[in-house]
Design a protein around this nucleic acid. Structure first.
Lengths: 126, 126
DNA sequence: ATTGTTGCAAAAATTTTGCATTATC
DNA sequence: GATAATGCAAAATTTTTGCAACAAT
């Protein structure tokens, strides 16, 4: 426990912001969201910390929507629905297991994660 | 038939390059690949045409790997395996139908496409 | 002191765009 | 000649990085 890692105020605030929203934010969204509370926050710091979180596996990239990478603070396996009109990303919590998973493993692919993403129009947009 | 669309030499060459490789290329890859044959080809033209192909639905974006969007000339539904080490994208042709699809439809999501992507290490990298 | 973290600005890198030119019908 | 497509370079974006300053033990 001698390592003092991941406990800077801003780092915690960034992680907390990501984990307490279900909007699957971009780096810029996190930055804008925290800018009021931390006026001297820099976008570079947000990017640096998101990179770190991804390495640690506490957040995951969901998809690139309109040129921006969107991230998810939920690490349990689940699926997503991305609206092609408004860009909203919805969590689909029923992740199904399929026979394909074991077929791939048998063929020598070493699966680290599986992502099921639906694209279409959400309730509000269709 | 009075419309003369999609029949410029370079446009055809770009589409042909995308459709005749299974590497799921980036725009830059397509550009580099055609540069020998068309020394005056410009990267902007490749981007412009890929945008067009995506709108027309003749190619699809697969994923953003290391900052580059990778595209697929196969439009039939299928899945992908992306190697987190070498960045190779493999086609997984066994697309399974699941109960989740109809559940989402019932809930008011209008599904346009479904993408199953596995991430992990491929045979060569593990 | 030493190591981690940040702000700031510059740099990289990808993608888009404006406009004059070229190609195609 | 009219419209479509392109080359080129500039611009717009997103993301990364170098470095000096600051924070925490």
């Amino acid at each position: 426990m001698s390592k003092r890692k991941n406990f800077s105020t801003k780092r915690m605030a960034i992680l907390n912001t990501i984990c307490s929203t279900d909007c699957h934010p971009s780096a810029k969204w996190v930055y804008n969201n925290l800018k009021e509370k931390y006026p001297d926050l820099s976008l570079g710091t947000v990017y640096r910390n998101i990179s770190l979180f991804k390495e640690e596996g506490v957040v995951n990239a969901v998809a690139n929507v309109n040129g921006e990478e969107r991230i998810d603070g939920i690490t349990e396996p689940h699926s997503h629905f991305i609206c092609t009109k408004c860009g909203s990303i919805y969590d689909i919590l029923n992740q199904e297991l399929t026979a394909l998973d074991s077929v791939l493993t048998d063929e020598g692919f070493h699966i680290e994660s599986k992502s099921i993403t639906y694209y279409g129009k959400c309730n509000k947009c269709s």
